[in-house]
Every structure is written in structure tokens, then in C-alpha cells.
Design a protein around this nucleic acid. Structure first.
Lengths: 238, 238
DNA sequence: TCCTGTGAATTCGTTCACAGCC
DNA sequence: GGCTGTGAACGAATTCACAGGA
């Protein structure tokens, strides 16, 4: 049953399923099949069934899944049945944008503290919160029971600030700085790196352009192209 | 040799290697072994060798890889030997933050256009660029030869804007809206979704807290815990 | 009959281990 | 001797295909 450990790949998809299910609930759909859910997410139905089976046997054969019940179970598995307090460290453009981002609170993530070192920012109000000096980190993490730190500081400060977050007791870090951080084993770390995403895109972009150039040349040489199948299976990025 | 197709997983790591190599070059290192590179990235050396072997045989046995040459080859593979023009659509908090983000230009991504529909924003100057109305999309994509669109619009507009980008000829889209977009097969799509990242973190966070609670309870029951191995192998998120 | 839950088969990715070259 | 490049072994993730319950 649900004693099996949930694979990493499955964990990453659960939030996606959850969002789709919330959409369905909004539209007053009460029941959904793996087939229907799969087609709206764009994956194989068997994958959905297997993923969900890691949480338990929450479907009904011949019918499908009860939307509300499934929402509840996925939320529980992801730890979303209570709110989480987060701190944003670094209030440059990106930090401020995140502080003002509504989808945060909407999904149960409470911004409990904003911190920076810049004296021009400390004391200012951003998104309704006073910006504190990073030296207050220890105190505020304890007082607000902050478990998640969002790192939006410049690259060269990232490791130092990560260390301070860990020292203060934060055990999950979402890093927006384009740097490899090292954290103790008991701390979860995830990275969002803009330029990596763009560079992956240019890889495929370039390949397409090269293919096209090749196609044109071939076209000039031999009129028709019998081998259309060759270009069909691009490993599309996820 | 390099005729083998490059696996998706490898493509995603190449930008990381590239960044490390640029760091090394900055510090005037001329040569690096897979072992050294691996330890700075935190992966298995064999993985690095295999990844790099997809690009060709660019190492020297008994010595390692020439840093500059490898930088050149990875850049070429990723299509970074020339600049790419990008358009940012949606200049809310996040869009403005991205427009002002320095790392963009630094890595060869030129912001060629900013677009929005909001009459309050159109005509304003953001990060040195005049914000255009989305109706200008077609023209500006052609004029500026924009291949990459960055989507930072509200969720409900995302699909519509994606369609317009595709219609205008954009073939790579980086989507920051928390929505599933559908695009034609010849268009690459990548997604950055904040709340998914946070929800993956809370999954592990919650599991840790549950383990801890369990540990405490067990501790109260039977004094010592012989089975320390059970908690050792958390599948740490990437 | 319909759709879930899951073993079996398959594909994809990682790591090992070593032959081959500098 | 040292380090790359890569087949072979292994492991994880996906998909197939079907048994079994509503």
C-alpha cells in the first residue's frame, strides 16, 4: 500500500496533478479518470495511476478518482495541510517580485520575513513587510518558525547566506542564485536557474535551425525527401 | 563519435559544466580532469566523461580536458556561439525583475523587446527599453529575429500569449506562468514554476518532521535505536 | 463493461570497471 | 602512472498489458 517510498520523479509530478485537480474542482467536476487527467496534463495514463498508487488505493475501479478526496490525499502527502512560513533573503528585483507574487500565499506559503543587508533596503516596506537586516535571521527564524528560505541574493553571497539560514535552523532552501551551494545532508535544496533554462532552449533551437539548413540544402540537391521519419522524434524538454 | 544524439539529461547538465569551466578559466586554470570537475559540481566523474563524450573526444588521456577548448565545445553544442534575441511578454513584478536581471545579457541573451497589454505600462521605459503593446509582437519578432519568448503574464492569459508568440514565429518559450501550455511540436517549451518547487520542498520537509516525531516517540518507548541505517538514504531533490 | 492497481517488459540514465592512449 | 572513453552491469522510471473489483 502506501508504505512504499515515493519516487522522486513522482513527487515532482504530484504538484502538477494537484493543480489540475483544483481546476477540476473549481469547475465542479466530482470524478476523474486517469485517462482524463493524463490527457489534460499530457502524460501517459499508466504513469498517473502508478504515481497515485504510491499514495494509496484512492481510486474506484470502473469509475475513477473522486476529485475532492484526491486533492485531500495529495495535499496531505505534500505536507500542504498546514501553512508554511518562508523567509526571502535578498530583495533586489527578483526578491521584490517574489515578495509581491500572489500565488505564494494562495498556495499556503506565508511570507514571514524579508531580509537583506543593504542599508538602503533595511527598514523599507516591501509587499507590506518591513525589510529586516540579515543579522536578525536567527531570531526571526525561531520566532516565526520558518522552515523554508528563498535565496535571491547575488551569486557571491549565496553560500554565505545559505550557511546562515542553515545555522538558524532552516531545513529547506530554494536558491535562485546561479551557484552551486553545499548544505548539510538534512537540508533540502532546490535550484531555479534562469540561464540554464535558456541555454537548454538554445540547444534545441540551434539544432532545429541546423536541421532546417540541412533540409534546405538537401532539398536543393535531391528534389524530394523520402525519409521524413528521421525528424519526427525530438526529445522535447520537459 | 559525436554523431550520437545527446540525451536530454546530458543537455541539462552541460550549462552547469559550462559555468564551472568559466569559473576555472577566470582563475587561470588551463586543464581539468573529470575527477576535479565532478567534485566541484558534486556528481560522479564517469557521468562527466560520458556526458562530454557525446560532444566528441575532447580530452587527453593521462591529462584531462583543456578548459578553454572545452568551454568552446560546450558553447558550440548549446548554440551559444552567437547571441540570441529574446522578448519578455508581461511586465508585472516578475517580468520587470527579469528585464533588469544582469545575468541575461552576460550569457549572450539579448533582450530585444518588452511587451504588455496594460495601457499603463505600454510606452513606459523598463530597463532601458520601451514597453510595446503585444499587438506589435508580429512585427518586432520579425524585425529583431526573436527566437525565444519569455512568458511572465498572468495564468489566464498564458495560453493566448503563447499562441501569439508561436504565430509570430517564436520557436522557444520559457513559461513562468503556473499553467500547462500546449504548443506545436516544433516549439520547445520549458516551465519555471515557483509553487511546484516549494511544494516539492514541503514534501521532504514534512517527511523529515514526521520522521523526527517518530524518532522522538520511539525514543520514549525503547531507549536506543539500533536501526540507524533506515533514515540514511533520503532521495535528495536535484 | 469500465477503469484501477500492478507485475512484467522496456527504455532511459547512472555507475562500474577497464582497455587504450598520452 | 594517470586519465579518458566506453562497453557492460546496474538501477530508476516509464509503458505495456492484464487481472480483478465496482
Amino acid at each position: 500500500m502506501s508504505a512504499r517510498p515515493i519516487p522522486e520523479a513522482t513527487v515532482q509530478r504530484l504538484p502538477v496533478y494537484l493543480r489540475m485537480l483544483l481546476d477540476l474542482a473549481d469547475r465542479s467536476t466530482t470524478t476523474v479518470s486517469s485517462e482524463a487527467l493524463a490527457s489534460s496534463v499530457g502524460v501517459n495514463p499508466a504513469k498517473i495511476r502508478k504515481d497515485l498508487s504510491f499514495l494509496g488505493s484512492y481510486g474506484t475501479r470502473g469509475v475513477g478518482y473522486d476529485v475532492d478526496y484526491l486533492i485531500h490525499q495529495i495535499s496531505r502527502a505534500l505536507g500542504l495541510t498546514h501553512d508554511w512560513s518562508t523567509a526571502i533573503v535578498g530583495l533586489g528585483n527578483l526578491g521584490q517580485a517574489l515578495a509581491n507574487y500572489g500565488g505564494f500565499a494562495e498556495r499556503g506559503f506565508r511570507i514571514a520575513a524579508l531580509l537583506d543587508v543593504d542599508p538602503d533596503l533595511v527598514g523599507q516596506t516591501v509587499a507590506g513587510h518591513e525589510v529586516l537586516h540579515v543579522d536578525e535571521l536567527d531570531r526571526v527564524v525561531k520566532e516565526e518558525e520558518i522552515a523554508i528560505g528563498v535565496l535571491t541574493v547575488p551569486e557571491r553571497r549565496a553560500q554565505e547566506v545559505a550557511d546562515r539560514l542553515v545555522a538558524a535552523g532552516v531545513t529547506s532552501i530554494l536558491n535562485f542564485a546561479p551557484s552551486l551551494l553545499s548544505v548539510p545532508e538534512h537540508v533540502s535544496l532546490r535550484k531555479v536557474d534562469l540561464s540554464i533554462e535558456l541555454q537548454v532552449l538554445t540547444f534545441y533551437e540551434q539544432r532545429r535551425q541546423a536541421e532546417q539548413a540541412l533540409g534546405l540544402r538537401e532539398h536543393a540537391d535531391a528534389a524530394a525527401d523520402a525519409d521524413a521519419a528521421a525528424s519526427g522524434q525530438e526529445p522535447e524538454p520537459t
